[in-house]
């Protein structure tokens, strides 16, 4: 049972980190980024590379994956999206562009995994870090590190968004880009910032993920539904939405799967995705703007005086 709770929390933390990035880029650029899951897999492979070549513990490689991830996020915006946005492409075209970018990343990951394999003389298309994990008072490292990362991210984002001048500009341009632009705020900077954070959070999550499950180049396919479900359930128009949605999806997915496996034995893991899908569709039908877009949330916000 302990293992289930621990796995649930780690999985939820990872989903939260990934959904945060998705929500941020959606707010600033208005594109659902289908490549978000592939960012995470890139992060996993960066961590693996550092481990193989310089023996760096994957946890210690997080600062580096953070930066590289940010660069990948920015390049997604610059290469795949910005030229299209300039040409006033429709939202469907932008979505196809992120699908194409996802395919490019997938191809690069696959090719790279085989190159890495030929260099290290072992199969790198499938790997885990679980055996490398440390323990503190019986708590596995992945639990501690992933929770710390989520906390740090939230505190960091809060301080940045609510306590600095740049943050005010950011929030202004997220809420009303044209008005913000009229006030002399550079909206382009907001976009770059959100894509950087999106990529870096995803890559960070990706370097934790191998502690929880096997990574293959196709892992992105496994993640994408959960990420979108989390962001949509929480609300794509509010950063806090990713946090709430991430835990709703992460917890219900893991616990539901656990319950199912008690009755039907292992091999029902995949049905966890069904629960994400159902929650997502119900949320869309009842509260199309997600939990943070609902009336209840607005009341709560007023009450908390945010």
């Amino acid at each position: 049972m302990m293992g289930v709770i621990e796995g649930t929390i780690v999985w939820s933390n990872i989903i939260v980190l990934l959904a945060l990035g998705l929500t941020m880029t959606y707010i600033t650029t208005a594109v659902p980024n289908f490549a978000q899951a592939s960012f995470a897999v890139v992060g996993s492979y960066i961590a693996l590379t550092l481990l193989r070549f310089i023996g760096l513990d994957p946890y210690l490689s997080i600062p580096l994956t953070f930066i590289i991830g940010g660069l990948i996020g920015i390049s997604t915006y610059y290469i795949a999206l910005k030229p299209l946005i300039k040409r006033k492409a429709s939202i469907e075209m932008l979505m196809i562009a992120t699908l194409a970018w996802d395919l490019i990343l997938f191809g690069i990951i696959g090719a790279y995994s085989e190159i890495l394999g030929s260099l290290t003389k072992r199969t790198e298309t499938l790997f885990v870090f679980t055996n490398l994990d440390f323990e503190v008072y019986g708590l596995p490292g992945r639990l501690i590190v992933s929770t710390m990362l989520v906390l740090l991210t939230i505190i960091g984002l809060y301080l940045l968004l609510y306590k600095t001048k740049f943050g005010i500009a950011l929030r202004a341009s997220m809420e009303n880009p044209s008005l913000a632009e009229a006030m002399g705020i550079n909206v382009e900077n907001t976009r770059l910032f959100s894509w950087f954070i999106s990529g870096s959070l995803a890559c960070m999550a990706g370097s934790i993920l191998p502690y929880l499950q096997e990574i293959v180049p196709q892992t992105g396919y496994f993640l994408i539904v959960s990420i979108f479900a989390a962001s949509i359930v929480g609300g794509l128009y509010h950063i806090a939405g990713a946090l709430i949605g991430g835990y709703i999806i992460g917890v219900s997915e893991s616990l539901f799967t656990y319950l199912l496996s008690m009755f039907f034995g292992p091999g029902v893991l995949v049905y966890g995705k069904v629960i994400s899908l159902i929650i997502m569709i119900i949320a869309i039908l009842i509260i199309p703007r997600g939990v943070t877009g609902s009336i209840l949330w607005r009341r709560l916000e007023k009450w908390l005086n945010l």
């Binding site: 492409a89 075209m93 194409a100 996802d102 395919l103 490019i104 690069i108 696959g110 085989e114 030929s118």
Partner: peptide, 26 residues
Amino acid sequence: HLPFEAVWIQYIFFGILALLVLCYRP
């Protein structure tokens, strides 16, 4: 002299092709 399967090249190629078409001849 690819140290990997050509199928990955295929994915990258079609991804880039899609981006180019979207950009230059939508």
